[in-house]
Write a protein that binds this DNA or RNA. Structure first.
Length: 204
DNA sequence: TTCGTGATAGAG
DNA sequence: TCTATCACGAAG
């Protein structure tokens, strides 16, 4: 099985990781570290979106998103503006199934002073505990759209732990396909956006 | 609870 | 052109 299973702790996560299916990628990304320039944070919350059969995925209604999937490789950043205010960071998955992983929350680890300045808040728990918050903290915008996150060590994911306890529950803020348990959070972590309602633990 | 905000797509 | 929709966050 390609992916983090082969990556050593501290290594950049390669494109093979994103050549599986969105659910696996979303789950396995929890516990990895996102490196974004001078800032770093542990991924503590993700959601999976599937290009086929998932009405909540942009692919379902947006030709432009389907075109994005066609022309980009696994590991490309898919970034869009939501509600006219918040940038959303997603990673393209192209493998056994196509789709995206939405990065929903980080535990700030490095560059915290810079994140506080960008966010205008001091409480570390409020820095990156939501998809719109973390893009503001890391200064992620449309200019990063289509960037490959598997080639540049300044903008990538990194494996930092062997095993993390992950909880699966329903995705946040969507109206369709809302019953699917495709959100993944790091158990009892203080930096997730909204605490899971169920506590079905999944061990790696 | 409500409300701002702008990209996108589809209808007319 | 116009309108509905939207994977959010902050204030109250």
């Amino acid at each position: 099985m390609p992916g983090t299973q082969q990556a050593l702790i501290g290594e950049m996560i390669g494109a093979d990781f994103f050549r599986r299916d969105p659910l696996r990628c979303a789950r396995d990304l929890v516990g990895c570290e996102l490196i974004w320039g001078r800032c770093r944070g542990g991924v503590v919350e993700t959601e999976a979106y599937n290009a086929i059969g998932d009405e909540a995925c942009h692919c379902f209604a947006r030709p432009s998103t389907r075109a994005f999937v066609e022309r980009n490789q696994a590991g490309a950043a898919y970034i869009y503006l939501n509600y006219g205010v918040h940038w959303m960071l997603n990673v393209l998955v192209k493998g056994t199934e196509n789709g995206f992983v939405l990065i929903r929350a980080l535990q700030p680890m490095r560059g915290i002073a810079l994140m506080k300045r960008r966010r205008g808040v001091d409480d570390e728990r409020r820095l990156c505990s939501g998809p719109g918050k973390l893009t503001q903290a890391l200064d992620i915008t449309i200019r990063h759209h289509e960037m490959n996150l598997c080639v540049n060590e300044r903008f990538c994911f990194r494996k930092i732990a062997d095993s993390v306890e992950v909880v699966a529950d329903r995705r946040i803020g969507i109206r369709v396909s809302a019953d699917l348990p495709w959100r993944f959070t790091s158990r009892d972590n203080q930096h997730v956006s909204i605490r899971p309602k169920v506590s079905s633990g999944l061990k790696d």
